[in-house]
Design a protein around this nucleic acid. Structure first.
Length: 101
DNA sequence: CTCATGACTTTTT
DNA sequence: AAAAAAGCCATGA
């Protein structure tokens, strides 16, 4: 089942263009709170991996973080979109970072 | 309602 | 700098 909170997260994710990334904290704040932990939980339950680009969500320090289908898969997906990743960390993270309106 | 848990973040050792 | 602890919050039992 999909809760309202989860749906909100997915809607935000769908706004992120390819080649860009965001953080759990960013999403949580966009939702008006600090539920960054809950955001991760929502991603883990990701119902449609294709429609929702949950691989574009990384930790606040630029690290990749976890991924339901394996963190390696996450890294390759990002690299195939043009995001350079070195030793589990996003390069030029601050620049590639997408900001919500 | 209360309790435990986790794709997190920040502070303190 | 690196590791541990504390703080956070939605979700499911």
């Amino acid at each position: 089942m999909v809760t309202h909170f989860q749906q909100a997260c997915y809607d935000l994710l769908k706004q992120i263009p390819a080649g860009k990334v965001t953080t759990y904290a960013e999403i949580a704040h966009a939702l008006g709170g600090k539920a960054y932990r809950a955001v991760g939980t929502a991603m883990n339950k990701n119902p449609n991996p294709v429609i929702v680009p949950c691989h574009r969500v990384v930790n606040s320090d630029g690290r990749l973080g976890q991924y339901a289908f394996g963190c390696e898969r996450k890294q390759h997906l990002l690299e195939s979109e043009g995001v350079r990743v070195v030793d589990g960390k996003v390069q030029d993270f601050e620049q590639l970072r997408f900001r919500f309106n």
